[in-house]
Write a protein that binds this DNA or RNA. Structure first.
Lengths: 111, 111
DNA sequence: AGTTATCGTAAGTTGTGACGCACGGTGCGT
DNA sequence: ACGCACCGTGCGTCACAACTTACGATAACT
């Protein structure tokens, strides 16, 4: 029936979102593009760790980066966010449909 | 400004979704409620591992369970899914708003 | 009562991912 | 040219989370 494996892209996205530090990074980038050093500011981990996390987020398509002089600006990638949004949306509606179906069956069974 | 930490509930949800096996479990439950033994069927890991994953998913509010005779039926929890949906939705729209703002600034800066 | 099936959990092992440190590269300034 | 700031990346370490195995509990049979 339906494939058991998720889209590799979605796998990467959820894997990326599975880490607290990475979620914090995204939350911080929500305010706008930032250089690595600013992303790392007041974070519980050191800058190199932030770089590694950013690399993973980039691989998942959740952030984009562009060099600006000395530094490198990271920003949210609407592409990846859109993909996540679509997936959650469809999963949600599908689940609700199924849920309604089973609620109906329950009602039927109770008669 | 905006709080750096996410809602503990969302933290639990994303942590739960951060694991491949757990995602597969959810995907399987999308078809309807199942006993543990059926969830574990043809899975790359043994049944006890599935039980542990289900416990985590339950803690995150993504699944619910009810005893049915000898077995125990697990099903998707619309509550948690709704929460996830809302979060992704607002994050998405907020990000888009910010994105538009910065695109505008870019345009302005190019003049 | 005895047997079988389903399930949860405790205990112990292991892979791996998150991290700090150190280094090298690059760009901007003096 | 020199120093400085920013950044990416090996490399080694370590904690933790995902496993298996073994056991005990409960429920539905004969």
């Amino acid at each position: 029936m339906t494939l058991d494996l998720l889209d590799p892209r979605m796998e990467a996205i959820f894997d990326a979102l599975g880490d607290r530090t990475r979620r914090r990074i995204l939350k911080r980038l929500e305010a706008g593009p930032l250089p690595v050093i600013d992303v790392a500011k007041d974070m519980p981990v050191a800058r190199p760790a932030i770089s590694q996390h950013l690399k993973i987020l980039k691989g998942a398509g959740l952030v984009v980066d562009r060099p600006v002089g000395n530094r490198r600006l990271y920003a949210l990638d609407p592409e990846g966010l859109a993909e996540l949004r679509r997936f959650v949306e469809t999963f949600w509606t599908d689940a609700l449909t199924r849920f309604a179906t089973y609620a109906e069956r329950d009602l039927e069974a109770r008669k």
